[in-house]
Nucleic acid binder design. Structure first.
Lengths: 242, 242
DNA sequence: TCCGGCTATGTCGTAGTTTAATTCGCGAAA
DNA sequence: TTTCGCGAATTAAACTACGACATAGCCGGA
């Protein structure tokens, strides 16, 4: 099966990244199995062997690193269509953990099949580079946000990013999207304390800008939220980089 | 020319990343020219077209993003052997700037040659994925540091990282390495103010842990510095990821 | 000699952390 | 049904790490 990719002007077909995850032509001749997990399951543990790579077919989760002092940095939020495992550290030893926050279905690939894939399918290799570069670009944005912006800006940025990603996946109903995370997850992603994140969310709620409760995010005043988030137009992570 | 790569156990030859930059077998059939620039030159400007990719043959610089409010986030420090431009945004429009802090010599590649390279040289494609993943892993570490650690820890971490990278490049003379950056650069990389970074450096100096002046960094008490930096053993960025 | 960029250091205000107490579900046990 | 227990959200109060501002010293270049 070959599908059109709306996001990749350079190579108009067989491009990898998120549209309908089920359509991933990438899986041809590479997929090794499927994996279903419950909410709360840790799919990958920091420092453990990871012979597999994954794409997320459904469900959501977080990718994070834990520190010596017990604190935690959420690297990014894992949504359907995301590719997981490329970032894994030295020779398949993961440098981070991945945890499901909802039930998830994953498509698994064997890491050891990767080299064969490169030799036989240059297009897929190209896609992987693009993926890795997208990821890198997103992390760059996170770094800017965490490093240079204040609490309100960070929280607004995160909500907006998540909203748009989920909308892009077709999960938005009007101005609402499902957001099955805890406030702690967002706090850990933004380098803020839970308490301060909570208060900031309270501010956004009281100003009728955004409301997030019961696992559902609602954007009430996108204009203002964007103002807080100081968001750039460029929507990295959805388009090809090379 | 084919060289041994000390860092890549999986494919023992023709692997890309930093050893002696001059040996980059990668350049075969891909290199399109060389570029020499003075200290202070901006090689790449955020938002501008970037038809080229680079490897650094000599000299140092910074890669950064500028914000609406004038602040700046240094994404990483560019050292000899580094590959620049893969991260560039949509269709060759850079999402960040690159500036030389010393005179630099760069090896240039045409972005448009990339696709051909993938088709003809799967090994190089493999290297590129590895590179991108390394970069991504490093950014993950930065994010953890900036998001979760305090000033002293951040500064210590940065000094240690830079020291080790430069040492790995063979630029260390005993416990000294050249470090041609301004304090502002480090501050911007760590999400700290210049003043606070300065004071923290003062602390390290007065405690006889590390001294940085006149473009030269000196580690006086590595043990203690590592303690501050809370550094993990894993040295991502020097080893293959897939 | 003056000027501009970088480093150094002191004071003070504040954004954000820490700790803790309260509340609100919600599922399991009684 | 009520009760208990647990995890998450919420709010308040005390503390602190860090930023903003100001000032001074240093050095190289015009």
């Amino acid at each position: 099966m070959t599908v059109e990719c709306k996001n990749c002007p350079l190579r108009q077909k067989e491009c990898f990244q998120p549209f309908s995850p089920q359509e991933l032509s990438f899986t041809q001749g590479f997929k090794s199995g499927e994996l279903s997990v419950d909410a709360g399951t840790t799919i990958q543990i920091e420092g453990s062997e990871t012979p597999h790579l994954y794409t997320v077919l459904s469900g959501m989760g977080v990718r994070y690193k834990t520190l010596e002092n017990g604190r935690r940095q959420v690297i990014n939020f894992i949504l359907p269509g995301d590719f997981v495992g490329l970032q894994a550290g030295v020779m398949g030893v993961a440098g981070h953990s991945v945890e499901a926050t909802t039930p998830m279905v994953l498509c698994t690939f064997r890491r050891s099949d990767l080299w064969r894939l490169f030799q036989n399918h240059p297009g897929r290799a190209y896609d992987l580079v693009w993926l890795a570069a997208s990821e890198e670009a997103f992390l760059g944005q996170s770094l800017v946000t965490v490093g240079q912006r204040k609490g309100l800006e960070r929280v607004s940025w995160a909500l907006l990013k998540l909203f748009d990603r989920l909308k892009h996946l077709g999960l938005a109903k009007g101005n609402r999207v499902p957001l099955p995370y805890r406030q702690q997850d967002v706090a850990d992603a933004l380098g803020l304390s839970l308490v301060h994140t909570n208060k900031t969310l309270g501010v956004l709620r009281s100003r009728h800008v955004a409301r997030w409760s019961d696992g559902e995010l609602q954007i009430l005043d996108r204009e203002t939220l964007q103002g807080y988030a100081l968001v750039e137009e460029e929507d990295v992570g959805q388009r090809p980089l090379i």
